[in-house]
Each structure stands twice: as structure tokens, then as C-alpha cells.
């Protein structure tokens, strides 16, 4: 189950269950929203990668089954995409992870997720409040952006 809130060309709010199939469905909705807003492909790629890592981490590690709720909000501004992800799963402070550059020759099969998030997201902030994990970040977008007209 995924649920997307009423359409605004510059704000995307939606929620999904903590299953990897739901996460995938939500990511496809985000991709459609960003394409409809004519976001440059490079930044859509960045957002897709960051959100895939954040949401699948919550689905796999934050909740003990696939019935947990994940909330997502993306706001488009003229030069950035602001994003917030909330869940009520286990507390998880990302400040401790993803700082080390991967060593390719070790051929690890995991552990790249938070490194990718840190490589692409700006101002990554985590807060735990009232039993809820809140992760916020933004992705910069090219200055000359079609949305500049929309956002005003």
C-alpha cells in the first residue's frame, strides 16, 4: 500500500508500508513527480538513490515486519529539493555510519548505502522525537531551473 496526498506541482507527500515492494512503488511515484516537475535528470538520479537507500533501510532494519508506516515529504524550491522521511520504527542515529569511503578491493556485498546517502545529500539531520525518527536533507538543483517560474 502506498498513498499519495493531493497533487501539488511543488510538494509531494506520501506514505507507504515498510515492505520493499511498497518502497519500490513509492520511489516510482517520486520519480514520476520529479519528472513531471521537469527536474534535471542528474538530480532525479541523486534523489532516487538517496531515497532508495533511506527507505529500504527503514523497511529492513527499522521495523520488525512490513506493516510499519513510512512518511515522505519532498518540497521543490527553485534551487533545491528538500526532503523529510519519518517513521516510528527503532531509533537509528545515522551520524555514526557512512563516513568511511568504501574499499572496492574488499568486495563487500553491503555497507554502501549510507556512504551513498552521505555522498549525495546535503545537511543530513536526524532527530528522534515522540517515538518518531525524522530524517531531513536536501539535494541542490541547478540554478536555472524550470521550477523557478512555478515556485515564484
Amino acid at each position: 500500500m502506498t498513498y499519495r496526498n493531493a497533487a501539488s506541482p511543488t510538494v509531494f507527500t506520501a506514505c507507504c508500508h515498510s515492505s520493499l515492494d511498497d518502497v519500490r512503488a513509492l520511489l516510482l511515484q517520486v520519480d514520476g513527480f520529479l519528472r513531471a516537475a521537469q527536474t534535471p535528470a542528474d538530480w532525479i538520479e541523486d534523489m532516487n538513490i538517496i531515497l532508495a537507500e533511506v527507505l529500504s533501510n527503514i523497511a529492513r532494519h527499522g521495523y520488525c515486519d512490513d506493516t510499519g508506516r513510512i512518511d515522505l515529504e519532498i518540497r521543490l524550491a527553485d534551487n533545491e529539493l528538500r526532503c523529510r522521511v519519518s517513521d516510528t520504527g527503532r531509533p537509528f542515529d545515522p551520524n555514526a555510519v557512512g563516513h568511511a569511503t568504501p574499499e572496492p578491493e574488499l568486495l563487500r556485498e553491503g555497507g554502501y548505502g549510507w556512504f551513498l546517502i552521505r555522498s549525495l545529500a546535503r545537511a543530513l539531520t536526524y532527530r528522534r522525537a515522540m517515538g518518531t525518527n525524522n530524517l531531513t536533507f536536501w539535494v541542490p538543483v541547478a540554478c536555472k531551473h524550470p521550477l523557478a517560474d512555478l515556485v515564484g
Partner: peptide, 16 residues
């Protein structure tokens, strides 16, 4: 069109 770190990990696993 899209691959995440789990997909990358699976390719590394296939290589091994």
C-alpha cells in the same frame, strides 16, 4: 534504469 546499493551488492556477490 535504476540500481541501489543492494543491487550493487548482489552484483559483487555474483562476481564472488
Amino acid at each position: 534504469e535504476f540500481m541501489d546499493s543492494s543491487g550493487l551488492g548482489a552484483i559483487v556477490g555474483a562476481m564472488k
